[in-house]
Computed example of a mutant assay.
Amino acid sequence: MSTLDVVGLRDFYATPLGRMVKRILRARIQARWDNVVGLTVLGLGYATPFLNPFRADALRTMAFMPAEQGVVHWPRPSEPSSTALVEEDALPLPAGSVDRALLVHALEVSRHPADLLRELWRSLDGGGRLILIVPSRRGWWSGAEWTPFGHGRPYSRSQLTDLLRETLFSPLDWSEALYLPPTNRTTLLRAGLMLEKTGRAITMPFAGVHIVEATKQVYSAIPARRASRLAAQLRPVLVPIAEPRRTNRTPVR
């Protein structure tokens, strides 16, 4: 893939390797969110390969795609589209309207990742949860530019922790995935699920992605960007008051 656009992403997930990646990550996502009955689920970035399992039970399932990436129709051509092209720091959603948010191929290519997470904080309900799937800095997938995971900025665990805390999210669960190498070789693809199981069991290094589930912190504090805007709005304005004019006249008695 020369650029991380929606056509290249769609084409990748149609390859044998892309189908294996979808199978592995979808299973991990569903294991965390096994009950979405009556909830509103949002996918941001290119999350459509992983949203279909939620459509039957969720109240609403939406897929937002950043303006720089482009947008495709989803779920089926015969159905109304549930996708939208958005600005990542100005989502067209009321505050507290989302219960679950899934970010895939989003954070690592965002120009302002903290602003993106702050906007998700605003959009999530008080008990809302977020799953981030982000390329690992030490994983071999981050150097495979012909895959979507080789674009943007890969993260270490400590970098993700700092970013989540800055934007008022508390991590609930950390794990890694994509232990298989980024290749379309048939022999390795056939062993993909076994490699995944083995990698998780013995904590192998060089996993391709971090999978982080976090929850929205709800207390009196507000995200830093909003706090600075409010401070600017509430800054007192000092209005000069003219002094009484002084003269040298003798007062009348």
Rank of each mutant, 00 (worst) to 15 (best):
T48P: 09
N184W: 08
R246M: 13
T250P: 08
H210W: 15
T147G: 12
V239D: 11
R122W: 05
A114M: 05
G150C: 04
A63N: 10
R137Y: 07
A106T: 14
L130P: 02
E79G: 01
A114I: 03
W140Q: 07
L59A: 15
E119S: 10
P154E: 03
R253Y: 06
Y155S: 05
F54G: 08
E87H: 14
F169S: 01
S123C: 12
G143Q: 08
Q159S: 13
Y155I: 02
V218E: 14
G199Y: 03
T183M: 01
A201H: 08
M204D: 00
V21N: 06
L130S: 04
L230N: 09
D162T: 13
L168M: 11
V86K: 00
R26I: 03
A67D: 11
G70L: 08
I222A: 10
P182T: 00
T3R: 09
S156K: 01
Y219N: 15
E88L: 08
W174R: 03
P154L: 00
P181F: 00
T83C: 03
W121K: 02
I133N: 08
R157C: 00
F12H: 02
S228D: 13
E176F: 00
V109C: 05
D173C: 06
P16F: 07
F149N: 05
M65K: 02
T247A: 07
E243A: 11
T161N: 06
L160M: 05
P75T: 01
P244C: 07
P77R: 13
I131M: 15
R118V: 14
E119D: 12
P181I: 00
A106N: 12
W146M: 05
P181M: 03
L172R: 11
R190L: 12
S81V: 04
P171V: 09
Q69F: 12
A63T: 06
A47G: 08
S78P: 04
D173M: 12
F64R: 03
I131T: 15
A67L: 13
L234D: 07
V37N: 10
R118N: 15
R165N: 13
R245I: 15
L180E: 04
A221D: 04
G43A: 11
V239I: 15
L189K: 00
Q159V: 01
D11E: 15
A90F: 07
V212H: 04
N248S: 14
R246T: 12
L39H: 06
E145N: 10
D5W: 06
L9M: 12
L44G: 06
R26K: 11
W140F: 12
R137Q: 11
D99I: 07
P223A: 12
N35K: 03
P92D: 05
R229M: 09
G128D: 01
G127A: 14
L188C: 01
